[in-house]
Design a binder for these strands. Structure first.
Lengths: 220, 220
DNA sequence: TAAAAGTACGAACGATCGTACGTTTAACTC
DNA sequence: GAGTTAAACGTACGATCGTTCGTACTTTTA
């Protein structure tokens, strides 16, 4: 598909780690992997706007100028597509928010970097509908299944990362002792709320995030 | 419709203010108003689970044992149904969370009461899918239109209420001076995050809320 | 009493949904 | 070179979607 696609894959940067997945020697599978990536990359945008549930094979096919059954060949079922889209979103999120923050020293510096990159990610927006996770966690949190599990797993990992940096900050004495789990929960909550506020036109959402985080990291 | 409905309206308490709307003398319109209420009451449950977008006239009709076109008669369009469902959700939320908290004295007492009733509302759950607003604000925050406007308006009112009680608490010296707008934003953020956490099985979500609010209201 | 208004229904519409199936073409394996 | 595998397509399916329309019935209005 990828070579024939009338709209041959946007290539909007961020290709990042450049995963080629299995069977790198086989040019058929490689072509398939590229097609999958092009499809999921666009699907992430749609899903941040309309949610994973708002995705439809027909819409995706029309947007990309390919056939609906071509998508079906690559993902078999709708749920498989959802899981692949989540995987791509995880990679984009890691590349845009997590990886760049690893340059900063562990502790408060990295935590502030994470928050700043998150703000950029939610404001830019890399995803036109705002935070992919905020849009879809709320959709799927009441629908048991592998999609919810994957979303929950990513979210849990993100909060754990925040907690880890907080723990580092406490251990090194950068901030006074605090409940790192609770503080991580708070920061994540404020980020999610800021994403919503941004969608609704609040121009000061980023400022609110910075004030809350600043307050939490204040050595007291 | 209401008199003929095979499943004649669940009547699960909370009828509350018992609105009869317009033309109380006209028994035709009264019948319509009752049918509208029965329909929106059930739709609120569905929408807290699947989102307003997950609502379908066919599903609603089947669940309630009425005809699809009967619903169409009463709401004309799907968007009108959405707006009516939001109105019902507002009433249910007010009756379950806001009104009972008005018994408490303005300030920290009322704020704690609001939070406790909110926890009960999210845990019970009055709405099987959890917080109606959390589920739908995330869905519609990127889709301009009257539905988003109504959801945003309700949310704004809720945060303003929190801020009002905080202001009262500050003015009366119950708590040290703080940024009431920011604190209200924070509390709302934590409540929304707790709702998600509850859906994902976190047994300590309520505890986290209480600890954060307790910290904020700590006179320092 | 006749006309008008409102509720509720059944039937049908065009559209779109996810999926299944068979075919064609390219690439790899034996 | 023969056979297999994978991508991509076109077609078709059953289901459901929101909406339109005509009709029956009840209640209010004139």
């Amino acid at each position: 598909m990828s070579e024939r696609m009338r709209r041959p894959a946007p290539d909007n940067g961020l290709r990042a780690t450049g995963r080629t997945d299995q069977a790198v020697g086989d040019r058929r599978r490689l072509r398939g992997a590229e097609s999958r990536q092009a499809i999921t990359r666009h699907a992430v945008d749609l899903a941040s706007l309309e949610g994973l549930n708002g995705l439809s094979l027909g819409r995706l096919a029309t947007d990309l100028g390919i056939s609906k059954s071509g998508i079906q060949t690559l993902f078999r079922t709708r749920e498989n597509l959802h899981l692949a889209v989540i995987e791509t979103a995880e990679r984009l999120f890691a590349d845009a928010v997590v990886l760049p923050a690893l340059d900063a020293a562990a502790g408060t510096a990295r935590l502030r970097a994470l928050v700043e990159h998150w703000i950029g990610y939610a404001e830019a927006p890399l995803f036109p509908g705002g935070c992919f996770w905020a849009a879809n966690l709320a959709d799927f949190d009441s629908r048991p299944g592998p999609v919810r599990d994957r979303l929950a797993h990513q979210h849990q990992g993100w909060v754990a990362l925040l907690a880890e940096e907080l723990r580092q900050a406490v251990d090194s004495g950068e901030v006074a002792d605090l409940d790192v789990e609770l503080a991580a929960f708070q920061i994540d909550a404020v980020l999610m709320a800021a994403n919503t506020a941004l969608r609704l036109g609040d121009r000061d959402a980023a400022g609110k995030v910075r004030r809350v985080v600043g307050e939490l990291l204040r050595s007291r």
